[in-house]
Amino acid sequence: MIALTGVEKTFGANRVLRGVDLQIARGSSMVIIGGSGTGKSVLLKCVLGLVSPDAGRITLDGEDVAHAERDAFLARFGMLFQGGALFDSLKVWENVAFRLLRGARKRPKAEAREIAIEKLRRVGLRPEVADQLPGELSGGMQKRVGLARAIAAEPEIIFFDEPTTGLDPIMAGVINELIREIVVEMGATAMTITHDMTSVRAIADNVAMLHGGLIRWTGPVADMDATSDPYVQQFIHGRAEGPIASVR
């Protein structure tokens, strides 16, 4: 279980997180929604220790992540970055197999390549892509390579930062199904950021809405439509009028 209590983060004068409380049960799928620039990506990075919070506590299975042994801690995680964050000097398959080619989980090269190609197939990419460089792929393809890299070492906890942004509806459907599969079949814990309400309904066990640096609403996805919270209602129906200002 991942638990965040009172997490705060400020960049200069920009108070991004103002006391976030959130819990994600083991083996469940949490989806975080919220307007762009509300700090969703920063929140994920705080859990991973890429950004250090100014205040608050983040624990994984009861242990404070700030004191965890870094290598062992990070080995449990996979992360898809919003921009893909592929290593542009490495071929696609070397990106996907990055963890399998070095360090504690090192495998023989041929085996790592095979795993990479299998993961690429799962995100809907042909084996030919494996030997290309990331710069030769479209944005949506890069996103899917990033996804393949995040799941390559079969981590217990996976973070997806906008996995379907920039994909066509059919490919988005494939990715939604894949994420659901990873949670249900592999028993992974997933935390997904998305703006896409179709994705939310396809992926989520629970939903949390981040607004104004706080978790505005959280609950099971089935309760989302019925909530009277005006912020959630405005967001899920994509209305221009409502408590969320359109100029932010």
Partner: peptide, 16 residues
């Protein structure tokens, strides 16, 4: 460029 495009963060999450 790697820093700006989050590649450095990605390295860290890949235990490197």
């Amino acid at each position: 460029t790697m820093k700006v495009t989050e590649q450095i963060d990605a390295l860290v999450t890949l235990s490197t």
